[in-house]
Simulated assay, not measured.
Amino acid sequence: MLLHIPKVLDADTLAHCTALLKQADWTDGRVTAGSQAATVKNNLQLPETSPVALQLRAAVLEALSKNAQFFSAALPKRIYPPLFNRYGDQANSFGNHVDNAIRTHPSSAQHVRTDMSFTLFLNNPGDYEGGELIIEDGMGGRAVKLPAGDLILYPSYSVHRVEPVTRGARLACFTWLESMVREPQQRELLYELDMSIVALRGEQGDTGTAVRLTSCYHNLMRMWAMV
């Protein structure tokens, strides 16, 4: 499932992040790449422990905690602490790669199985040319380039790349998460059911049908969730 979630960051949070990014001290992005990805990765990242990265991470995690659509689609059990990257100038692309199956945080030593990945765009498409996130889906790939504050959620097993930025700079947050529901088809079914229940309740209120469907949703969660 590829899911575009709009306005994860509101205007005030986005302005706060923009101000912080102006203080960024970037380093080689290959520091978090696996052996294959490192051969095709050419971008910059914020060091994970930098004060700017810590403040940005807190803002992103707070916004995600309030986003019902993100929670419904991802059902996150663990989120690897979000990272931040820059594409532009000579460090401007990331070739085809697949994310590592397990990420281990260097300070906590906590393992995160990468079920899903996301990219949260931090500046607008008009600020740069190129920089599309291409996610291979068997149909030639989908190109993703979203407004600032919007997020794309996609399976970590997907082959993906970032096209070269030929003007300006592309700024984004990215990370991986382990879901409470491991199987992609089960997560997608639960998401579609949850969104249908939300729509039904909005149209008709808490009818008997809505209550029964809600019961089905939670019983499926009991069957499939690993917590």
Results as ranks from 00 to 15, higher is better:
Arg201Ser: 03
Glu188Thr: 13
Thr104Pro: 12
Leu200Ser: 14
Leu146Tyr: 05
Glu62Tyr: 11
Gly205Thr: 03
Asp28Pro: 06
Leu153Cys: 06
Gln55Asn: 11
Ala172Arg: 00
Leu220Tyr: 02
Gln186Phe: 13
Glu203Ala: 05
Thr214Val: 04
Asn219Gly: 09
Arg113Gly: 12
Ala19Cys: 06
Val8Leu: 04
Asp10Tyr: 11
Ala74Trp: 06
Met226Cys: 05
Gln36Phe: 13
His105Lys: 08
Gly126Phe: 01
Leu46Thr: 01
Thr39Ser: 14
Glu48Met: 08
Ala74Arg: 13
Arg182Ile: 12
Gln23Trp: 04
Gly131Ser: 02
Asp10Val: 02
His4Pro: 14
Leu14Gly: 03
Leu189Arg: 05
Pro155Ile: 01
Val198Trp: 07
Ala148His: 00
Asp127Glu: 03
Phe174Thr: 09
Met139Gln: 08
Asn67Val: 10
Asp89Ser: 10
Asn219Thr: 05
Ser156Trp: 07
Gly202Val: 09
Arg142Trp: 06
Glu192Ser: 09
Leu44Arg: 11
Glu192Gln: 13
Gln204Ala: 06
Phe71Glu: 05
Glu178Tyr: 14
Leu75Ala: 12
Ser93Leu: 00
Pro47Thr: 09
Val227Ile: 15
Val40Ala: 13
Gln90Asn: 14
Ala199Phe: 06
Ala68Asn: 10
Asp12Val: 15
Pro155His: 01
Ala11Leu: 11
Gly149Met: 05
Gly88Asp: 07
Arg212Trp: 11
Pro81Ala: 11
Leu213Pro: 15
Ala24Val: 02
Ala53Thr: 06
Phe174Lys: 01
Val211Trp: 08
Leu9Val: 03
His111Leu: 11
Gly131Tyr: 00
Tyr128Asp: 01
Gln204Leu: 08
Ala172Gln: 01
Pro47Ala: 08
Leu2Asn: 02
Ala91Pro: 01
Asn67Met: 08
Thr49Pro: 10
Thr207Ser: 09
Pro106Val: 12
His16Ser: 04
Thr209Asp: 10
Gly140His: 09
Ser93Glu: 00
Ser179Lys: 10
Glu132Gly: 01
